[in-house]
Design a protein around this nucleic acid. Structure first.
Lengths: 186, 186
DNA sequence: TGTACATCAGTGAACGCGCGTTCACTGATGTAC
DNA sequence: TGTACATCAGTGAACGCGCGTTCACTGATGTAC
């Protein structure tokens, strides 16, 4: 039956939150409409009252994932020094916990490979998320604006690559890659 | 009808080659048995004379992809100096051509995200491929064995991360990431 | 403020589709004599 | 070397399944008076 506007808004948010986690855990293809809806406490039939297509959900969920993940770092940046925030971010990013829990981790490391084969609309959402992370990282770097952007890009590429490789490898190889990247001289 | 052992071996190789390219272009899920078989000039029904499951094909194709991609670099390493080979490898890896042609590119950048959600068997194959690339890269680095491995791991993580991010982003963001990573001081 | 009615969020069954896999069949290949 | 027969690589139709999407329906919500 019909529910109030407030409850519908709550449902919408729960759908996006569930999708945001499930798309990182299972991938864009692996996170089905039915699973997302039941995770949000609803049935799959009502999905199309909230989104025109599954692609529209993926875009909203990806944006939410970047917002949540990037938000943690941005908040740390306001509360601590840039170098402390960056060190903490790097340590958490390259931790075994992050590798084991993609659902609450970096969306870039979780779904980049599939987004690469998705429509331009989703790439635009992904690119916006990446730029948001790059902007936050650049605040931790030194030098000219361009030098700071470039350092941020290399830093993000290394982090994303390390976690992506670690997750796809056997445990021994994964451990070695993470250790090596944590050991980087800065 | 039945074909000779030689022709069957040729078929087998063509199936693996087609799968090796298609799995990088379309992903593990996107490369269907039917498409792989027709790309190899066969019909899908005969697939199970060559592989027990699709997973077995993916493993063989992933191993072949790593062998081919790593082989190019290993050959360059034997023909040129380590620093020249590494510089060439980095330039080609971070090129727009590599980003646009995943089918003949680095398998790690193409399918890591999906392998992360695959059975351990495939992760072992992936890890072996990564270790092969790391061994080649380590030959280009200086210092102790561990220092060389660590540098190789960071190098590979940066390359894989940069191309993965570039492919998943809008063109402008992609270009900036590649440019920044190419500009790295070494 | 009450009342009558239109709206529409959510339900659950159904759809078409493509996937991995199976199977009966074909006929050239490989083998036993 | 020939011959008779078993083998089996490859074909194409069929299967069960899960997916994204659609739809008739329900009944509480929102609105017009």
């Amino acid at each position: 039956m019909r529910v109030s506007r407030e409850e519908m808004a709550r449902s919408h948010q729960k759908i996006v939150e569930s999708a945001s986690r499930l798309l990182r855990e299972r991938g864009l293809d692996g996170a089905g409409v039915s699973e997302v809806m039941s995770d949000a406490g609803l049935t799959h039939g009502g999905f199309y009252r909230h989104f025109e297509t599954k692609d529209a959900l993926l875009s909203a969920a990806l944006e939410a994932a970047f917002g949540e993940f990037s938000g943690h770092f941005e908040k740390a940046l306001e509360e601590r020094s840039a170098s402390t925030a960056l060190a903490g971010f790097r340590a958490r990013y390259l931790s075994a916990g992050h590798v084991a829990s993609p659902g609450v981790g970096c969306p870039a490391a979780a779904v980049a490979g599939e987004v690469a084969r998705s429509p331009d609309g989703l790439k635009a959402t992904f690119g916006a998320g990446v730029n948001r992370m790059l902007a936050a990282l650049a605040r931790c770097m030194g030098g000219s604006e361009q030098a700071r952007f470039d350092q941020a890009a290399r830093e993000l590429a290394t982090l994303v690559g390390a976690v992506t490789l670690a997750r796809a490898s056997d445990k021994e190889t994964a451990g070695e890659i993470l250790r090596a990247c944590r050991a980087a001289r800065r």
